[in-house]
Amino acid sequence: MKIKLSPSKKNSHSTKVLVVDDDPAITRMIKLNLEGTGEFEVKNVNESPAALAAATDFEPDIILLDVVMPEADGGDIAMQLRSNKKTKRIPILFVSAMVSKKEAQKGLYRSGGEHFLAKPVDTNILQSSIHTILYGSK
């Protein structure tokens, strides 16, 4: 059986996304999926304390931030990013496994002024959520 591959999409790298999650398999999959759309350039960070430096260097348009991480959790990282002159305006999308069914069914939702998306992430919903946060709607 031969597997037919889709022709690869041209990557215009219009939107830069920084993904911070302690699980390398998750960040790798998000990168593959988002870059596979041809619309995103993705940088991954698996050690949360390195997130601020990565954000300063990479200058992403948006940061996808896991909530529960061993060294510094998503809340701590968000505070660091928002207290830094260079990164304070970068929108953050929290991606969390600790979400109720009701919240998860909403797709992108807001809580305490923050944007949230439930794990497991659907690439189409992730893509449209990034559009909504950055441009208001898709």
Binding site: K4, I26, M29, T37, M98, P120, T123
Partner: peptide, 25 residues
């Protein structure tokens, strides 16, 4: 739930990626 959802996320995103990259059979 947190410990299970992370691996589920990997499986789900992996399947989504394969689906987006493969045309057949």
């Amino acid at each position: 739930a947190h410990e299970v959802k992370n691996p589920l996320n990997v499986v789900s995103l992996g399947a989504q990626y394969l689906e987006s990259q493969i045309e057949g059979p």
